[in-house]
């Protein structure tokens, strides 16, 4: 028993050490068409030239309720069924950055920390004393500070960029899990139904067993 306690104590220390990394910033994503639409616009303007989102098609954006005119503007000559491929061919991007920029369709699900990580990362740029850009959350990143947060000192401007970052992660969260809303809605019905059924089954069980002896 003593040994066990020692191990538990050791594990506790280990987990503390583990948790002492950079704390992720908190963010609540929006699921409404406005927020996700603004996020899509920001992604199309600031990310889409290098990053693809190959599991999202222009049609998905229209079906979600985004402005058809805007989507038509983004897709140009491409079909509504075309996926959102990066404007820069992958090989060029690989040459420019040493490695092809990752596809963003699943980004908020593909990183430890999810939306909070992506949000923190976007806002995590800073300038080193030598004037070089750095990132708190992903120091090896090759991506430039697209939001321009590292040069910002003013509070109001910072808040604005936080709002933009939130729009972007809201859109990315939607594209990683487009059926989330539907899933939650169905989930409430299913669980409500199961609660009723389980209560009934409990009453049946009690009644059956009350007949014993």
């Amino acid at each position: 028993m003593k040994r066990l306690l020692t191990i538990l104590a050791l594990c506790g220390i280990a987990s503390l050490l583990h948790a002492s990394e950079m704390e992720l910033e908190k963010v609540t994503v929006g699921t409404d068409v406005q927020t996700v639409g603004r996020g899509a616009e920001a992604v199309m303007n600031d990310c889409h030239s290098c990053h693809s989102m190959k599991y999202i098609r222009y049609r998905d954006l229209v079906n979600f309720g985004m402005d058809r005119q805007k989507v038509d503007g983004w897709r140009g000559d491409l079909s509504l069924d075309a996926p959102l491929l990066a404007q820069m061919p992958e090989s060029d991007a690989a040459q420019a950055y040493g490695k092809a920029p990752p596809d963003l369709s699943l980004m908020t699900k593909a990183r430890e920390g999810g939306v909070r990580y992506v949000y923190s990362y976007l806002l995590g740029y800073y300038l080193t004393p030598e004037g070089m850009p750095g990132n708190h959350y992903f120091p090896e990143t090759k991506m430039p500070d697209v939001l321009g947060i590292s040069g910002v000192t003013e509070g109001a401007q910072r808040t604005e960029l936080q709002g933009k970052a939130r729009d972007i992660v809201s859109f990315l969260a939607w594209s990683a899990d487009p059926h989330e809303q539907e899933r939650h809605r169905l989930g409430y019905y299913v669980i409500a139904y199961l609660l009723v059924l389980t209560v009934l089954l409990y009453l049946v069980k009690n009644q059956v067993w009350s007949g014993l002896k």
């Binding site: 899933r183 939650h184 169905l186 989930g187 409430y188 299913v190 669980i191 199961l194 609660l195 059924l197 389980t198 089954l201 409990y202 049946v204 069980k205 059956v208 067993w209």
Partner: peptide
């Protein structure tokens, strides 16, 4: 009767995972 009641409880836990934290 007892197994089906247990199944109901199990399905509630299972559904919480399937629908809300898969």
């Amino acid at each position: 009767a007892k197994d089906f009641y247990g199944l109901g409880v199990f399905l509630i836990v299972y559904s919480v995972f399937v629908f809300f934290m898969p």
